[in-house]
């Protein structure tokens, strides 16, 4: 939903970042307003996941220049947990398995920490149990998940549902979903996408990092950005995704080279 007057949630200007000394992001500009859904597409190795992780503050990515503002505040001044509390949520491409930490305990701790930071009431274990079970219904999740260790032994689909469950609990302003569709069969994809759709409001926004158009059949983006060589080289509407699906990425690249004379 595009509303030019809506609040700017995320402002990315000239973002450059390196991993182990290699520059992966080479100047990214992006503006995300409340209520919008953005899709970032691009071939493997174009820097999509790096962008997502850099926004969440992954320690392996070093930001070398540029700035990122979350509701006007410098995002890079914040630690990963402060970003989470401020409303940034990263849905991991490969959610980490943490044997020994119970999922219910983890979810409650995360929920209460973020609630506390936002000056809201925390829930005791019993209240939380009721609350989380309601949320799980949204995602068609078995309550048995609560008794298991975080992502430990979960199937690919189960892990992704667990990510969206966390999104539902933490109510982020800006959700960045990194390849949330990978490894999902069509039924699971529908459940996960419906879950995300229900969480979207005029006050928040989502950035979908994806490889394939199929997720965008379920979560319809307002903007589609094509990323290559660490830059956004084209931006369009939802129809761009369909065009990419049929024509591939090469033509975008050619067009970009023609326009800028740049080597990508």
């Amino acid at each position: 939903m595009i509303n030019a007057n809506a609040t700017v949630l995320l402002e990315v200007r000239g973002l450059r970042a390196t991993v182990a000394g290699v520059e992966i992001l080479k100047g990214i500009d992006l503006t995300v307003r409340a209520g919008e859904a953005h899709a970032i597409m691009g071939p493997n190795g174009s820097g999509k996941s790096t962008f997502a992780k850099a926004l969440a503050g992954h320690p392996a990515y070093e930001v070398t220049s540029g700035e990122v503002l979350l509701e006007g505040k410098d995002l890079f001044a914040l630690s990963p947990e402060e970003r989470a509390r401020a409303g940034v949520f990263l849905g991991f491409q490969y959610p980490v398995e943490i044997p020994g930490v119970s999922n219910s305990g983890f979810l409650r701790l995360a929920y209460n920490t973020v609630q506390g930071a936002r000056g809201r009431d925390e829930l005791d274990p019993l209240e939380f149990d009721d609350f989380v079970r309601e949320k799980m219904k949204l995602l068609d999740m078995d309550p048995g998940f609560l008794d298991r260790s975080v992502n430990d032994g979960f199937s690919g689909g189960e892990k992704k549902r667990n990510e969206i469950l966390q999104m539902a609990l933490l109510e982020p302003k800006l959700a960045i979903l990194d390849e949330t569709d990978s490894g999902l069969d069509i039924d699971a994809l529908r459940v996960v996408a419906n879950g995300v759709n229900r969480l979207l409001t005029p006050a928040n926004a989502v950035v979908l990092v994806t490889h394939y158009q199929r997720l965008l059949n379920y979560i319809v983006p307002d903007y589609v950005h094509v990323m290559e060589g660490g830059r956004i080289i084209k931006t369009g509407g939802k129809e761009l995704a369909l065009e990419l699906e049929t024509r591939g990425y090469d033509w975008v690249l050619e067009e970009y080279k023609g326009k800028t004379g740049a080597e990508v």
Partner: peptide
């Protein structure tokens, strides 16, 4: 402690210290 696990917990709002405590506890709790 595993750096990826730490980041995961921090990205969900846990402080560095509590993420470490939680993972250390889980290590023994197993």
């Amino acid at each position: 402690l595993d750096a990826e696990q730490l980041f995961y917990l921090r990205s969900r709002g846990l402080s560095d210290a509590s993420a470490r405590n939680l993972l250390t506890y889980a290590f023994g709790a197993e």
